[in-house]
Amino acid sequence: MGLSGHGRRRAQGLRREELAGLAGVSVDYLVRLEQGRSRRPSRPIVTALARALQLDEAENALLHQAAGLPVPSGRTVPVHIPPGVQRLLIRMTDYPVAVYAADWSLITWNPLWSAVCGDPAGSPAADRNVIRATFGAPPDWANTHGPAEEIDRALVADLRQAVTTYPQDEQLRALVAEVSAASPRFESLWRSGVAGRHLSSAKTIHHRLVGDLVLDCDVLTVTGSDLRITVYTAAAGSTTAERLEFLRVGAVHTVTP
């Protein structure tokens, strides 16, 4: 997502305020963790801290152990973003980019993605899931429209593959049960065993500031991590490209990548 400016840097590394901002926690809570006054951080907080610090797999395991949490294993949907992918995301500032887990839960995004799609930072983590947004009531930031039939089939097929890959993930099974009960369409697709896969597709985003954005959407996979990187691009010289640049400049003024 990015770092806000905090003046001249005298030493290498993240400042406490920067780490707190990247991890989505308060500075006060981070201080309490450092001082041992808060001894049981939740798994989402530890995961967010590991991501902000760009820890590798071994370092991430050590951080979980230090927090008294089980070390992440292959039994649950992984949400750890490898350092190389994190560095790639930091440099991809010209286009809206977001990273999802195998169950299509939103993990992280860049400033332009927030400027284009809306900022999900204020939404509960449970609401940042494309399956829920597609087959239930979408949150305020989910304002993307595309080929619904193709997308629905691909999402259900992806979720089925995730359940097959991570059969012991209780939250994943709960997600399937929840959406099945809420959406007859999802239940029908799920029971039918429908197959599908994500291809490049055109989507239209109705933006309240600049108008409609007609974007090409590509979903890239990360070998060995089961992550999905979603990238929106626009044809060079198009009206949408000009509108994207306008939003990008505004995002840069708000957040320093």
Rank of each mutant, 00 (worst) to 15 (best):
A202T: 14
V71C: 07
R132Y: 07
S192T: 05
A126C: 00
Y166P: 06
A126S: 13
R15E: 12
V156K: 13
L106Y: 04
D152R: 15
L89D: 06
Y232P: 01
T144H: 05
V27L: 11
V179A: 00
V163R: 14
G13T: 10
A67E: 08
A52T: 08
R15Y: 08
D152V: 00
H6I: 08
D56P: 07
H253T: 05
N129K: 02
V25I: 14
L209V: 14
P96W: 07
G224A: 09
W141N: 00
A142D: 12
A125K: 00
G118T: 03
I45P: 02
P70M: 03
G84H: 11
G13S: 07
L33G: 09
V255Q: 08
I205Q: 01
I90F: 12
E245T: 11
A101D: 15
M92F: 11
L247W: 03
M1W: 00
L53D: 12
T256A: 12
G68M: 07
A133V: 01
T144V: 14
T204A: 06
V79Y: 09
V255E: 13
E57W: 05
T256C: 10
A202E: 15
G5D: 15
P96K: 06
W113N: 12
V116E: 10
I205Y: 09
E170T: 13
L106F: 04
D140V: 00
Y95N: 13
P44R: 09
R37K: 14
A20M: 09
G21L: 01
V85Q: 07
G193E: 10
A101E: 04
V156G: 06
E150W: 08
V130G: 00
I151Q: 06
H198N: 03
R87P: 00
S26V: 05
C217D: 10
L199P: 00
T223N: 06
V214K: 15
H253A: 08
M92P: 01
A102W: 01
R128M: 03
R243H: 14
Y232A: 00
V249C: 03
K203Y: 03
S42N: 08
G193T: 12
L220V: 14
Q86M: 14
I229V: 15
E150C: 08
A137G: 12
T256E: 12
N129T: 03
